[in-house]
């Protein structure tokens, strides 16, 4: 009995919960729920991903508090370390600036969905509320030889078949990802000579494209060069920046400068003319 009591004191995942654990639960639980809400309410995907990463780290702390030491570490390493970073990687690939469209395709769908979610939460909570659980059995005995050793013993005996199937699943997933994202070139890439010949045949733009900014005072690549009349030329900015809409426009400034210059010269010329007329 005294041995059991001592394990209960030393083991974090005891069958009773301490006040410290209650404080930890209420503080971190609140933060976790706020993080989850931010995940579904943030407009940009990057912010959602960061909020979700925070929630996952808090869940890792809960795993540790519940005696799942191995799972807590795996949660940090695999979920927040690998999976969330994979998410961020794809967000960057697909476009950070692409915010969610706020237009509803089905009228009232958003509110109905929120109502469904609320009803679902009430249903789950009411179901759990019926359970008559007042204390844990505690993992003191199960974790006696170490949490990782206990898990390993179960995985390689009772669950060995599921474990092997999991390996097959992982290989299938890796192959599937490669098949889905691999793109076969259907035609040969054109070489420089063929591209030059095609340009001549089309006869649209024979010389090389003008460089950005050379007609104006700036030479940054995202600033369109100005034509002699002050209008920006789209041709000077590279295609990628043009498609992203990342062209910085200074033509307004340049045009107002030009207008001021013309006005000043006109004033001077006008004055000159007046002087000539007065002579």
């Amino acid at each position: 009995m005294s041995a059991l009591a001592s394990t209960a004191v030393t083991d974090l995942a005891a069958y009773t919960t301490s006040t410290g654990e209650a404080v930890q639960f209420w503080v971190l639980g609140t933060v976790a729920v706020i993080g989850a809400l931010c995940t579904i309410l943030m407009k940009k995907a990057v912010h959602s991903a960061l909020c979700l990463a925070g929630t996952m780290i808090i869940l890792a702390v809960f795993y540790l508090a519940n005696g799942a030491y191995f799972l807590g570490i795996v949660q940090v390493v695999v979920y927040t370390g690998a999976i969330m970073m994979l998410f961020l990687f794809v967000v960057m690939l697909v476009g950070v600036t692409a915010a969610d469209s706020l237009k509803e395709t089905i009228k009232g769908q958003r509110w109905l969905a929120a109502l469904c979610g609320l009803g679902f939460a009430v249903l789950l909570t009411a179901g759990i509320g019926n359970a008559a659980i007042t204390e844990f059995n505690g993992l003191g005995a199960a974790n006696a030889g170490g949490n990782v050793e206990g898990l390993a013993a179960l995985i390689f005996t009772k669950y060995v078949f599921a474990f092997e199937i999991t390996g097959a699943l992982l290989i299938t997933a890796a192959v599937g990802a490669m098949v889905l994202t691999h793109r076969e070139r259907t035609e040969r890439a054109l070489n420089q000579r063929e591209m030059a010949e095609r340009r001549v045949r089309e006869g649209k733009h024979l010389p090389p494209l003008p460089a950005p900014g050379v007609y104006a005072r700036h030479n940054a690549v995202d600033i369109a060069g100005l034509l002699p009349d002050g209008t920006p030329s789209e041709l000077t900015v590279m295609q990628t920046l043009r498609q992203r809409g990342q062209i910085r426009d200074v033509s307004g400034e340049a045009l107002s400068d030009l207008a001021a210059l013309e006005q000043r010269s006109a004033e001077r010329l006008g004055r000159d003319r007046e002087q000539e007329a007065s002579k």
Partner: peptide
């Protein structure tokens, strides 16, 4: 259950 419901919403 709260987190699950938030995710489903």
């Amino acid at each position: 259950s709260l987190l699950f419901a938030i995710g489903a919403t």
